[in-house]
Design a protein around this nucleic acid. Structure first.
Length: 347
DNA sequence: ATCCAGACTC
DNA sequence: GAGTCGGGAT
């Protein structure tokens, strides 16, 4: 059956724009850009939370002060401080999986691929990057960032419409968004999910990109994570699509849920399920070969929307249920709210 | 009325 | 860890 309500943001991943690896990385330079006049950007990490403020005063950037706060929570990204400035972390990231792969994982993956292809999944082949394709690299990357921001919790066509309206109004670049009215942006991106916050985040992101990255986007994972509204999932997506640089697996709730059902991930040194997508990502990266890091997402997203659904997984139609420890075992969620003694009576 | 799904707050 | 945001689909 067709699946018209694909809300994956990962169509972005499918058609990889040709991004020369030799592209300049303005964002990876030190954060002391300097010569921008009147603007002030504080980027600071406090107990793992983002604190980002922008004001119309003087430019000044503060790198993360991890020393003062104990061990950083993103140490695995290879974050480093050198003379108070950021350093690109690509080289320091250990990307060789060393953990023990779960049994039959290759069969399971192949089985899921078959299910997905048989189902003519429409998950991809269009997307916001189309709008960006005609743009020069810097603008294209910015469009990718905005598209990612908008696409979360939003269906493809809605996201696409919003991007088109932004494009028509010349509001898909850092400088123009920075000047634009927040209410205008809000109106243009409606009805994407959480449009109010996203409009505000777009303004902040535009300002930060303008001041700190000369209108480009951050080129490292940890700097992307500092942008408001950009969390682990989107940061990895943007690294993949925007920079063609795979730093980690893009784990959303589908990947999180399915990997746990399959018994592919667990908390360190235990057999307990992971409790967050971040935890899942780290556990998965311990053993999954890197060639699979990008394709695993669109694969499991589609699978998770059609077969291995959150509420009632269709184990009966799943060809890999024999390998799945959770097959036919997931019971309906706790009927927490049903009040009346007889839940079947509805009027 | 419930579910969806990512980032963030408390 | 639970609640919040904001629509749309069911």
């Amino acid at each position: 059956m067709s699946n018209p309500k694909t809300r994956s943001s990962f169509k972005l991943l499918q058609s990889q724009c040709e991004t020369p690896a030799s592209e300049p990385n303005p964002g990876s330079e030190s954060s002391n850009g300097g010569s921008v006049s009147e603007l002030r950007v504080f980027v600071r990490k406090k107990r793992g939370r983002k604190i980002i403020e922008t004001q119309e005063t003087k430019y000044e950037a503060e790198p993360l002060d991890q020393k003062q706060r104990g061990p950083p929570e993103i140490e695995e990204f290879g974050y480093k401080q050198v003379n108070g400035s950021f350093q690109s972390s690509n080289a320091s990231f250990a990307n060789v999986p060393t953990g023990e792969p779960p049994p039959n994982w290759e069969k399971v993956l192949e089985g899921i691929r078959k299910m997905r292809s048989a189902e003519d999944a429409p998950v991809d082949t269009m997307g916001c990057e189309k709008a960006g394709n005609s743009l020069p690299p810097k603008e294209r990357r910015f469009a990718v960032l905005v598209s990612s921001l908008l696409s979360s919790q939003t269906k493809d066509n809605v996201t696409h419409g919003a991007i088109q309206r932004l494009l028509q109004n010349d509001l898909l670049a850092a400088d123009t968004i920075d000047k634009a009215d927040e209410a205008t942006i809000k109106g243009l991106i409606y009805p994407v999910g959480f449009y109010t916050r996203k409009a505000a985040n777009m303004k902040k992101i535009a300002k930060i990109c303008l001041v700190k990255y000369d209108g480009d986007i951050p080129s490292s994972l940890e700097e992307l994570l500092l942008l408001p509204g950009i969390g682990p999932k989107m940061a990895h997506l943007v690294m993949n699509v925007g920079w063609n640089n795979v730093q980690g697996i893009c784990v959303d709730t589908h990947v999180h849920r399915i990997c746990n059902r399959l018994g592919w991930v667990s908390k360190p040194r235990t057999k307990q399920k992971t409790s967050t997508p971040e935890e899942t990502r780290q556990a998965l990266q311990l053993w999954l070969p890197k060639e699979e890091w990008v394709p695993i997402n669109p694969l499991l997203v589609g699978f998770g929307q059609t077969v291995c659904t959150p509420l009632r997984p269709n184990c009966g139609m799943c060809s890999v249920s024999d390998f799945c420890p959770s097959a036919f075992r997931e019971i309906s969620r706790s009927p927490s709210k049903s009040k009346s003694s007889s839940p079947s009576k509805k009027l």
